[in-house]
Every structure is written in structure tokens, then in C-alpha cells.
Design a binder for these strands. Structure first.
Lengths: 95, 95
DNA sequence: TCTTTATTTTTATATCCATCGAAATAACAA
DNA sequence: TTGTTATTTCGATGGATATAAAAATAAAGA
């Protein structure tokens, strides 16, 4: 039962990270894109400030939905498929 | 593209409704139960005030995740499968 | 070393959220 | 009609969230 409570808390955390339209868009762009995304590119695509994008990146990463790879000054974002497969199987298909 | 923006907003709304552990538990209980749920029963099951349960019921209903049937003073909650099938197919199975 | 570039953190603000107790509402029942 | 029961609304509170400008960080290159 404790394990179940933990799962419910984790799912609530994941849904919290997905409860913002711009973050849904980031996930969707990542799914459809053939290249990783960085902060500046998303800022231009979604027309929101870089600091706001950074904030959303952090929210997605903290929930475990994304991973980052750093190259020089630039951080590249990609999906963390382990989390999707474990907690939200087939979610990406329905996006 | 406008339609897509609408879908992203709707998904964000649904995830917002699911971003609270007690609401996840309500959905899960509804999925597993053979009878509809009312406010008082959930209040006892989850050990939270009836007014808080009413607040959660409203959040779930406004997002379209549940439906209500009223009988006398009591309102019975059930899942709105149309919404799950349309926006979150296979989600209930992964709960 | 100095400048440019990309991102993150900080600060500030306005808004939203979860919770409860108390009051209001609504329907039944004696 | 009066009292009981179930739910909702209201009011208050403490905490989280989304946003952007400004400042800080960090790497690259001239």
C-alpha cells in the first residue's frame, strides 16, 4: 500500500509537470524532432523569454521526463524514455 | 495549427486535474469499484474533509474526467469514459 | 584578457491551489 | 414544520506556479 501511495504521488508529480501548455509543446516538439532542443531554439519557437524556457526545462527534468546533454555553453534536451515507458506508456503516441 | 493549440491546452487542463495525489486516488477507486462513489464515502476513505472532497469532485468534473448522477441529497460520481478514450487512451490501465 | 553567447539563478509580482471550518443549500423524514 | 443528512459555497491561510527583467555563471573565441 505504501508503494501504491508512492506511485500516486509520482504520477501526480508527472502530471504536474505536464499541466502547462508550453511544456506539452516542448515534449511534442522533442517527440517529432530529429534533433535535440536547446533553450534558445525553444524560446524562439514558442515566443517566450529564455529564463522562462529554462524554468520549464528544469521542471521537466526534475520530474524525470527529460535528460540533458551539455556541449560548450549549450544544453541539449531530449526525452527520458525510461520514465515514459514506466509511468506513461503509450502517452507519447496520444499527444 | 489552432486545433493543435486547443488540444495542448485541453491536455494541460486534464493533467492539471490529475496533478494531485488525492484526485489520482479518486480516479483509481472509481476504476476499481463496482459502485459509484459519493462525497461522504471518499471523505472517509481518504480521511479528508467533505468540503475538500467536494472541491476535488468539482475539479475532476470541470475537466470532464467524471460525471455525476444525483439521487436525493447524494451525488454519485463515475468516470467519464468519453474523455479518457479521446484524450488519455490506455491511461486507466497504467494507473 | 576581453567580449560574445547561452543558460541559469535571483528577484519580484500576480495568480492559482489545497485545505479546513463555518455557513448555506437542498432533500428527505418524522 | 422541524430536524437530520449530504453536499456545496465562502472565507481565510499557507504554499506553489508562471512569467520576465536583471544579474550571475560558464564556455568560446578574438
Amino acid at each position: 500500500m505504501n508503494i501504491e501511495i508512492e506511485k500516486e504521488n509520482k504520477l501526480a508529480e508527472l502530471f504536474g509537470a505536464l499541466s502547462e501548455p508550453n511544456r506539452i509543446r516542448i515534449i511534442k516538439i522533442l517527440r517529432d524532432s530529429d534533433h535535440e532542443l536547446n533553450c534558445g531554439e525553444v524560446s524562439r519557437l514558442l515566443q517566450i523569454a529564455p529564463s522562462t524556457v529554462s524554468y520549464h526545462f528544469k521542471a521537466l527534468r526534475q520530474a524525470g521526463l527529460t535528460k540533458t546533454r551539455q556541449q560548450a555553453q549549450t544544453k541539449y534536451l531530449s526525452l527520458n524514455m525510461e520514465t515514459f515507458n514506466r509511468y506513461l506508456p503509450s502517452f507519447l503516441d496520444s499527444l
